[in-house]
Design a binder for these strands. Sequence first.
DNA 1: TTTTATTTGAAATGTACGTTTCAAATGTAT
DNA 2: ATACATTTGAAACGTACATTTCAAATAAAA
Lengths: 201, 201
Amino acid sequence: MKRTFQIKMPKVETFDKELVLKRASNVFNDKGFNATSMQDLVDATALNRSSIYNSFGSKLDLFLECLKSYQGIYTIKISETLHKAHSPLHAIELLFEFYINEIVEDKDNMGCLITNCTSEMANQDKSIVKFLTDNQRSFIALLEEFVNKGQEESIINLKKTANEYAWYLYTSILGFRTIGIMISDKKDLQGIAKTITQTLI
Amino acid sequence: MKRTFQIKMPKVETFDKELVLKRASNVFNDKGFNATSMQDLVDATALNRSSIYNSFGSKLDLFLECLKSYQGIYTIKISETLHKAHSPLHAIELLFEFYINEIVEDKDNMGCLITNCTSEMANQDKSIVKFLTDNQRSFIALLEEFVNKGQEESIINLKKTANEYAWYLYTSILGFRTIGIMISDKKDLQGIAKTITQTLI
DNA sequence: TTTTATTTGAAATGTACGTTTCAAATGTAT
DNA sequence: ATACATTTGAAACGTACATTTCAAATAAAA
């Protein structure tokens, strides 16, 4: 309970915020920020317009919350994926397998919310840039950690530093998420993923 | 002259179509399709609203013409770049150098019109999908041709087929164009490009 | 110079946008 | 049961959108 310190307790926010953000994220992911209307969001979330503005502020504020929610969900999924692996290289291979499943299951070919957002808004809005920069930094740090372990265990080659390979993998993932909008065939995607990860061996 | 077969020749279209398309492409590239208004296009092209509708049909039709114009310009630039090389591998390295220069000179961090369009519209409009699919096919064919030559000359390894490397390179270029929105530092970009092309050696 | 098909400019069309407003409904704590 | 801070629903706000309209201007051909 957040408000027990108050003398009087009025009607309180009842909706499931995470569920609302998931539904809003889905619309934003499908149509992009600019093509998504407030009406679309009202329909998708089943919230009233006023409630959306009350709870989130503006369309852009809601979008930023969606980005954070989406990032949170994927951080967990990716973390789980990486820790299932029996070696650092295998972790990176599993990461691509994870993305392949995401793409194959993404029947509407929406792609990744964050990658799409980079294309659509990274040169338009400062708060978006901040989010994307932070996301990039932490993702690359995570990748670097696994590459580093792989190099220490002599499973990943030493032709490049762990940081260089992390940037390479991050760039490849951006490309992979974008080509996933155009291609949904599992075999084709596995072929591309194999070629990307082969570089590390 | 296209209309000499007519008896009477009325006032005829005077504006430089390629220049207009370049200017329109620049706005679309900067803001994306959905965030670009007709007023933005009127301002950028210095054409009248009526003239735009007369000449191009609709905003989407104009956008498709912009995509084709952009594709035409890049096809020439890329062809020139590739044929400057002294080997097939060098051609691919020069291709990345070309993109690096494009990114560094892109002061507004707009990215690539076609890559951005994939993120924004590939799951929304059929005519866009057709353009993107054709573009993808021809670009991959071009890449495959160079990889194939490189493999015949034993400059590029045979761990993967030329087609597989072409898909890999295409995916990498999509990622490279997207990260180019976030990163403009030449050294950083050169590092990533080096890691991508290293795979072929 | 006149004719004529087309282009041009400015205004208008109707729709849809993001956001605000506010009275009524709600539910917790008294 | 009552009080009351908050949420809700519906309507309204002003703006901006893509597109159309049409009279006036234009320039090639007769």
